[in-house]
Design a binder for these strands. Structure first.
Lengths: 207, 207, 207, 207
DNA sequence: AATGAATGAGAATTCATTCAT
DNA sequence: AATGAATGAATTCTCATTCAT
């Protein structure tokens, strides 16, 4: 059995494969409910039911309800970081605009897989995830952006890269989420991607 | 007695002064709780208690719990719109950058008064407020931004002003709220204001 | 102002015409709500509203909610008694069957005017009306039936007329109520009236 | 766990013995409260309390308050049907009067166990129980009466047996309940039984 | 380890009744 | 007398969590 996940760490993820599988099963069940039945439907019993385990078992893996959200936050952090690393490392000789566009496209893919989840994480994440972990994630994002931009430092506008990364991350995330959740008239994927790309490039890169 | 506010219309705001006062008292209580105790603490009983009225009275003014959030949404819509109108009308011969900066500054003032509330509104607003009212607000914001930018149409970059307004509104709002709620290291009001101003100008105005 | 009606007597009805009118207005409002909106809708506020007076005024006439039901019980008792007296006194040289039929017809008219009310009276009447008043009504009914039957005592079957009157009153009332509320298939007014007439005659009159 | 009883179907009764016991425990508690404290006292909390379980458990067995009444209706339907079947099947070479008397006696026994409950069922039953189930019961009663009377069809008076069954069932039921709940002077069990027997026989059987 | 019945605190909401105006 | 805003006890129902099996 993996160590029980408390909202505040005991940090390590479960390692044994059987446990790990159940752990992921529960997270996936929660996500499925968020997306299909709404946040209110995600009671612990319902999550257990959809995961195909008993409530008792659920509580073997998660100290309490919030711990599920916390683990989901973590998983999304992880996915986003890996995605960025992958995209940026592959970049090669591409222009900033092309790289930025790729990140936007991949992030949209990530969010579209579970927009309701991401709304809930935005809404509840801060309450549920210890600030130091949010910070840790932020730092990784900043680091990755830095890494990318510093390749040609001459062309980067902002003095405070940390702040800029913060601004651009919040902007892209919120716009994407609002787009997925509100379906504003006259915006489609193509428009969104190009506008967000423009937002990033025009803000980050020296004109 | 003002007409009870339902989540879906009965639209008109209360008019008599005593009633109006109680109405606002309840809204203010809700905001205070959001800020100090978190969204979950804002039970109808607690709101009534903090407002210094009985639950019964609260329900005389609001059809249900969500109607409170709905009324808050409305109030903030109103405040934001008035602020923008004020700032932009006063603008006179200022540069785009100066006007943008003023809007950012004023919006920061508005949000700082109740950041938790604004995060809830940003993420829950759609659930409680009828989409047509959210849309009406969006259109007003877009209209105001348009009005401003069209003064010198040659210099505006985006083709689709509606989309641009959507993107920039979401971006500024989310960044500001994240700043207020997460207090990221190395960012202060001055930095935030200038970065957001830069974000707006570099995105909206032809380079 | 008429003396306030308590669930337990202060017995006398209001006498002044204005008061009396308001009193009846409130009773009628209650009945209208029972019939059109169901028993649950008959809150004191709604009754006052439909009656066109304020709750405060309602409480000037009725000590509490139950007092309204009590007064309605009384009014129906009165109407039923008067109806029976009228029908039986007019009887003249009619056969028992004809008289019984008339009573059934008139009672059906009375119940049909407010079936929901009569259901509620059957359900709540005993709780709300002091037993001595229920008894008093019963005695009047028995008296009337006696009066009628004693004209030709030879033909009456039962030894205990009180018991018989009780049995027949309960039977007719319940059947009529069930008919009006359940609309059982295959029964219409004509069938009901003739079957109830048959029930009365075959039970009461010596074969 | 037995399937939760909804006012509208999930029809099947609980089967496992422990569950079944709890289920019955709750029903019995409700009955006890109806009889001793009145219908209004039968709040879900009070029922749970008297049953010696928590409210939560009560709601594990009953979808809502009305479902309790619905289940009681069902149980009484069952008991009444079984009783009639038993009595009528045993009948043998008895006269109609003797059979009718037996039914009355047994019904009185049934009702005396819980007269308040039976009044509530008589008057509220339709509200909580789906009409098709009420109908199903009615049909069984009619069938049983038919069965009995058709032994010697020549002697049955009514043309419409369904209507007659409806009339006689309502009459006997109401009279019996009024007797149990109002204890009218001068009536005792013996008198009641013989009068109701007379009512049945004189109404149903050709004179 | 897994199960799921039982728990009970706590939430939203209603409505009879009062009383200051 | 009449008004109707305010009160708050009481009700239904939910759901995170526990623990005996």
């Amino acid at each position: 059995m993996p160590p029980r996940v408390t909202a505040r760490p005991p940090r390590n993820q479960p390692r044994q494969s059987r446990s790990r599988a159940t752990f992921e099963l529960i997270l996936d069940a929660a996500v499925r409910i968020f997306e299909r039945e709404g946040a209110d439907a995600a009671t612990t019993s319902r999550v257990a039911e959809v995961a195909g385990v008993s409530v008792g078992t659920l509580y073997q893996y998660f100290a309490n309800r919030d711990a599920i959200l916390d683990a989901l936050q973590d998983r999304e952090f992880e996915r986003a970081t890996q995605m960025m690393q992958r995209v940026l490392s592959v970049a090669g000789p591409a222009s900033e605009r092309e790289v930025a566009r790729s990140v936007v496209v991949e992030l949209l893919r990530l969010y579209r897989a579970a927009p309701a989840l991401h709304r809930i994480l935005a809404l509840e994440g801060l309450r549920v995830t210890p600030p130091e972990r949010v910070l840790a994630f932020d730092l990784r994002v900043v680091g990755i952006i830095k890494n990318f931009l510093l390749l040609e430092p001459a062309r980067i506008r902002p003095k405070q890269l940390d702040t800029a990364a913060f601004v651009i991350y919040q902007s892209v995330r919120a716009t994407m989420l609002a787009y997925l959740l509100e379906s504003p008239a006259g915006v489609d994927d193509a428009v969104l991607v190009s506008e967000l790309t423009e937002l990033i490039v025009s803000y980050l890169v020296e004109r």
